[in-house]
């Protein structure tokens, strides 16, 4: 298990704020498992649970960045495992196009992450959070000058 905890935080250390939109059935359960398994992972994630990744409107992502998120993570069931059969397939198409649009307008793949995490993958969830947090830490705070951020 990778942890960033070894770093001694100094007052100047940047602590990323990462908003995670996760589905109720897989990733949220995975996160729960990570917790009940007492796996250590970075505390930088704010999880927002939704019924399905298919319910996650790209507007949610824009709103998160608007309000000061340094990065956004979207996570749901593996392909074929969607509780509603195809919500994650719909979501996948949406994200494929949306991430392109955000990249072109100044929000790159060091701030926008997607993953499949099942209810059984507590370890994967913890690793994912640590890895994403490390990447965002490296990327630094979301630029204040980005047009999508509230002034």
């Amino acid at each position: 298990m990778k942890t960033e905890k070894a770093d001694v935080p100094t007052p100047t250390t940047f602590e990323p704020r990462i908003t995670a939109f996760v589905c109720n059935w897989c990733t949220y359960a995975g996160a729960d498992l990570a917790g009940t398994s007492r796996l250590q992972y970075a505390p930088n994630l704010r999880i927002i649970k939704l019924p399905c990744t298919g319910r996650i409107d790209p507007l949610f992502v824009l709103k998160a960045f608007e309000n000061g998120a340094d990065a956004v993570l979207v996570s749901g069931c593996h392909p074929g495992d969607c509780h509603y059969t195809s919500g994650n397939y719909h979501a996948r198409r949406r994200w494929t196009l949306f991430r392109k649009l955000l990249a072109l307008t100044g929000i790159g793949d060091d701030r926008l992450f997607f993953s499949w995490v099942s209810a059984a993958e507590g370890q994967k969830f913890a690793d994912l959070v640590n890895d994403v947090t490390a990447k965002v830490r490296k990327a630094g705070p979301f630029q204040a000058a980005h047009p999508g951020r509230k002034a």
């Binding site: 507007l59 608007e66 649009l101 307008t105 999508g148 002034a151």
Partner: peptide, 10 residues
């Protein structure tokens, strides 16, 4: 700023 960004992106 942010409203214009959201609008044009959406």
């Amino acid at each position: 700023g942010h409203g214009n960004y959201s609008w044009n992106i959406m």
